[in-house]
Design a protein around this nucleic acid. Structure first.
Lengths: 224, 224
DNA sequence: CGGATATGTATTGTATACAACCAACCGGCG
DNA sequence: CGCCGGTTGGTTGTATACAATACATATCCG
């Protein structure tokens, strides 16, 4: 019963996140319509939504392009995320029910299992990680905060580099979640906020390191 | 040369902000199309945009309603605004050019004039106030931050109560802008952030007071 | 009388046709 | 050779028709 407009949205979005549509590329409504097997009408809907998430941008004359994220852009997004998710963590700590704490604990168990697998199950890690943060956001009980963060969490470049994180980085992330859980258990909002902010900022640097490494390899390939 | 889709957007938005469309009211695409003198297509575009700004919400079955803002919602929005605009002020202070400082000063002069007029020119005050904050946002040079704040600044209830602020509240706002200017002139990001956060929080309480007063009058009218 | 179900009406979803528009290309002219 | 203006191919904007869906009301059965 999924409507064409939702399917188109999901499909275009995943094409952008996976890199099937490269940054800066122009998107024609007609072209997308063909690729998605629908007419232009639902495509227009989808593009408007994606525009809201800054995954596509429109030129002055309304032509649409895949947004290109410079390193500065990513840093900017992470900074905002650190601030907003920190705030969410504080609010969550102050309101979280015992059952939600339990669910968080279970989710982090799953994350731990994914990390300890050999090789680490990055896909599962990312899914559970998303779930972990979603639960916190839910506990923060601020619809507006949720809406704002929605536009920041999914970033094409980040999504693509996540697979190159080392086990060490994943383990550290797992450990930080544990500390968050401790803060939640004690309903210490300030603690939760601080840990969360640190957590996001570390994630940023893990990304930046992985990205720099990949860029170096790219250069090597290009020149060799 | 304004396109129908922009006109429809602006028109619906202003109808919501002014209260011509009351909170919770259902919006039919066809009805709006008739009122705006365009077809349903641009209306759909406009509604998607407004949905992104949380000015309208959609039911599970995709029917659209004017969003209703509880006092909690407004408090929530102001809290986020205080945080984000504070952040913007910090960044702005650290990067602001001398010419932008001049423009801010000029804008605040205009605000002062509007406040001192008899009676105070609230419309001009609001316009210039918007401009003042927009310049800061521009100086902060974070497109994402701008996008996030865009969804928080215009709030129906706030818009409608602004006209009931006393001259005292307007004067205080004017003075706080002056202090912001001092912080900008000295490139003191932390100072700017603190002043801005205080500025927004005061605005919230000014709103809450005015709102409480209006609500009391409403009750009186209803019962008498 | 209550509740489920059918039916009609209102509303949204999708496709398509056509109009307006932009951008790049080409040819002529200074 | 460079600039300007028109022309053309492609892209978006808008209207409209029709299909699918949801809601409300009425109707029928237990």
């Amino acid at each position: 019963m999924s409507k064409a407009c939702d399917r188109a949205y999901a499909q275009i979005r995943s094409m952008i996140l996976s890199g099937a549509l490269s940054a800066g590329e122009q998107l024609s409504e007609e072209g997308l319509a063909e690729r998605c097997g629908v007419s232009r009408t639902p495509i227009r809907d989808a593009l408007r939504r994606l525009e809201g998430e800054l995954l596509v941008k429109r030129s002055g004359t309304q032509r649409t392009f895949v947004a290109d994220w410079s390193l500065d852009d990513v840093a900017d997004a992470f900074e905002l995320r650190a601030m907003l998710e920190g705030h969410a963590a504080r609010r969550a700590a102050e309101r979280m029910s015992e059952t939600l704490v339990q669910r968080l604990r279970a989710t982090n168990q799953a994350i731990g299992a994914a990390v300890r697998a050999d090789p680490p199950d990055v896909e599962a890690f990312l899914d559970r990680n998303r779930e972990f943060h979603a639960i916190i956001l839910q506990a923060a009980a601020s619809p507006r905060l949720s809406a704002l963060l929605g536009t920041l969490i999914e970033q094409p470049v980040v999504w693509r580099t996540a697979h190159h994180y080392g086990r060490e980085a994943l383990l550290r992330s797992f450990g930080e979640h544990d500390e968050l859980l401790a803060a939640f258990a004690r309903r210490d909002g300030a603690w939760a906020e601080a840990v969360m902010a640190a957590h996001i900022r570390r994630a940023y640097h893990a990304y930046a390191d992985a990205h720099a490494g990949l860029a170096a390899i790219d250069r090597q390939v290009a020149h060799g």
